[in-house]
Each structure stands twice: as structure tokens, then as C-alpha cells.
């Protein structure tokens, strides 16, 4: 590369060679890690964005429905808004659990091997 970042500090582990990176990237083990990450994160991202857009669109074009009072002065719109909070908390928790059980061990194994073997 034409202009690389300044040399890394002493604390850093030795970086594997480009060939090693390519080799790992094409390995079945890394493929499994990538699949496990993407097949979880990508659909979930689309899911929460659709869910959020649904709320935005309903607010715009279904005013009557959103204004329906459920109990006291609490209407559908209010409940919908609070639900967005709840789903956000839930998704954050869910992803973190997935990452801790399915992604971290795989990532850690590859990292240790690459840095140790370099």
C-alpha cells in the first residue's frame, strides 16, 4: 500500500502475513464464524428497521388507529412507542447472548492461533 499507518506500538502482537489472512479467510472455520455472524445480524437488522418503519408509517398514515384509546389517556401510538423501547432492549440482549455463546469462542480460537503462530 502507498501510505500505511505509522508503525504499530510495541504492545502489539506480531501481525500475520497477507497470505495467512487470505488462507484463514478461505478456511471452513472462518466461513462458519462469518455465517454465524451474518445470518444472525443481517436479518435482525432488517427486522428491527422494518418494525421501526412500520411505526413511522402508521404514525403518518393510520392516525385513527394510532389514536385509539386503550386505557385512560394511553392510546395505541403511546404503547407502540414504548414497545419500540422494549424491542430495542430485547434485541440488544439477544444479540449479545448470541455473540457471547456462538461468536466469541470461534473468534477467540482463530485470533489466538493466528497471533501465536506468527
Amino acid at each position: 500500500m502507498a501510505a500505511e499507518a505509522p508503525p504499530p506500538s510495541a504492545e502489539q502482537h506480531k501481525l500475520p502475513t497477507p497470505e495467512e489472512f487470505t488462507e484463514v479467510q478461505e478456511s471452513a472455520e472462518f466461513g462458519e464464524l462469518r455465517r454465524s455472524y451474518r445470518s444472525f445480524a443481517f436479518p435482525l437488522t432488517i427486522g428491527f428497521i422494518v418494525w421501526y418503519l412500520l411505526y413511522v408509517l402508521l404514525s403518518n398514515y393510520a392516525g385513527g388507529f394510532m389514536g385509539t384509546k386503550l386505557f385512560g389517556n394511553i392510546n395505541v401510538a403511546f404503547v407502540f412507542g414504548v414497545l419500540q423501547f422494549l424491542t430495542t432492549f430485547l434485541i440488544a440482549w439477544w444479540y449479545s447472548r448470541h455473540a457471547a455463546t456462538h461468536l466469541d469462542p470461534k473468534a477467540e480460537a482463530i485470533k489466538t492461533r493466528m497471533e501465536g503462530g506468527a
Binding site: 502489539q12 502482537h13 501481525l15 500475520p16 497477507p18 489472512f21 487470505t22 484463514v24 479467510q25 478461505e26 472462518f30 464464524l33 462469518r34 455472524y37 461468536l103 473468534a107 477467540e108 482463530i110 485470533k111 493466528m114 497471533e115
Partner: peptide, 13 residues
């Protein structure tokens, strides 16, 4: 890209 992808997912280096 191989380097970026492996690093970004595993934290190598």
C-alpha cells in the same frame, strides 16, 4: 479485504 474481514470479525492484530 481478506485482512480486513478476518481482523474485523476476530480481532486478530
Amino acid at each position: 479485504f481478506a485482512e480486513l474481514e478476518v481482523r474485523s470479525l476476530t480481532g486478530t492484530g
